[in-house]
Simulated assay, not measured.
Amino acid sequence: MGNISVRSNMLVLEFRAQGLRCREQTKLVDTPANRKRMEKLLKVIEAEIMLNTFDFCKYFPNSKRAAKFIEIQERKQTASNYFNSTDAPTVKEFSVIWFNEKAIEWRQSHKESIEGILESHIIPAFGKMKISVIKKQDILTFRAALAKVQTRTKKTLSTSRINHIMTPLRMMLNEAADRYEFTTPWKNIKALKVPRTEVNPFSLNEVERLIKTAPEDFKPYYTVRFFTGLRTGEIDGLHWDKVDLDKKQIYIDQSLVKGVMTEAKTDGSNRVIQLTDRVVEALKIQMKMTKHLGPFVFCKKDGKPFNYQTISRVIWEPMLQRLKFKYRNPYQTRHTFATLLLAAGESPEWIAQQMGHSTTTMLFRVYSRYVPNLTRQDGSAFDRYIETQGENNA
Rank of each mutant, 00 (worst) to 15 (best):
Q108A: 08
S109Q: 04
K111N: 13
E112M: 09
E112G: 07
G116Y: 12
I117L: 07
E119R: 14
I123N: 03
P124M: 12
P124I: 09
A125T: 10
A125W: 06
F126W: 03
G127W: 04
K130N: 08
K130A: 12
I131F: 02
I131D: 00
S132C: 11
S132L: 02
D138M: 05
D138P: 01
L140F: 01
F142I: 08
R143M: 04
A145R: 11
L146Q: 01
L146A: 08
L146Y: 05
A147R: 10
Q150C: 04
Q150G: 02
K155E: 14
T156L: 11
T156W: 05
L157M: 06
L157F: 06
S158I: 07
T159M: 13
S160T: 13
R161Y: 15
R161P: 08
I162R: 01
I162E: 02
H164E: 08
M166H: 01
T167C: 03
T167R: 09
P168C: 06
L169I: 01
R170K: 15
M171W: 01
L173D: 02
N174K: 07
E175C: 07
E175H: 10
A176L: 00
A177I: 06
D178H: 13
D178M: 13
R179I: 08
E181R: 12
E181W: 09
F182I: 08
F182N: 09
T183V: 15
T184K: 07
P185F: 02
P185L: 03
N188I: 12
I189C: 05
K190D: 15
K190V: 13
K190W: 13
A191Y: 14
L192P: 05
L192Q: 05
K193A: 15
K193D: 15
K193L: 14
V194A: 06
V194T: 14
V194L: 09
P195S: 02
T197E: 10
V199I: 13
V199T: 06
V199K: 00
